[in-house]
Design a protein around this nucleic acid. Sequence first.
DNA 1: ATGACTAAACCTTTTAGA
Length: 265
Amino acid sequence: MRLATWNVNSLAVRLPQVLDWLAAQSAANAPVDVLALQELKMADEKFPAAAFTEAGYQCQWFGQKTYNGVALISRTAATDVVKNIPGFDDEHSRLIAGTYSGSSGEPLRVIGAYFPNGQAPGSDKFAYKMRWLQALREWIHTELAQHPHLVLMGDYNITFDDADVWDPEGMREAIHCTTEERTHLQALIDLGLHDSVRLFPQPEKNYSWWDYREFAFRRNRGLRIDHVLVSDALRPLATTCAVDKLPRKNERPSDHAPVVLTLDL
DNA sequence: ATGACTAAACCTTTTAGA
């Protein structure tokens, strides 16, 4: 199975690129089984379900006007779909989960999430990010008990460490790099999850997001903030995980690139 | 330069992203 996450920064703008990318994966004999999208920035009634259906995919989506919004695009149908963190009252559409079947029928829980940005340490938005992270950890704890094969992927808006930051000195304790955010990320890891990208050899300065300004992509001034976390039971089944920088070279690209995981499942 | 670019909406200006 191949799973991917991609913050598309407006699905209305990026739909052709998403369809092209999915088709290119299939053409390379590496079809994507589940693609988690973030930042749809569209109300549910505007979601282009027909375009995905015509391309051979099923969809679950949870959008909102202007901001946020997440979806799961898949070859097979999802069951037990959950939207947002149960028990956490949230005005934003940030999380969607579904259960899929592996090649031998074993269930795989897939959670796609758009973590809050947090704006700046000390801000109201930062406090919301911390509350959201706490609620996520508590819910993932219960999810892991029910679903040993679990993938939590999306735009985390958090770097693990200096290796994920193009300018670690300049961004010391800045948003996406604070100790408080990284402590929450580590708390997720401590539930029994693994950073798939770090399970495999990677290029130097391996990022998933680059600012639109100042030719940041061309200069590879980026951050690794899009992550694919796999559960303990899935870890031995992971065979590759990498950032696909190709779509970031498109005309009118998203500022994020997809991250793709391959599983022996 | 709390800027630079992109996207959406209350659209020639503001809000948000990261």
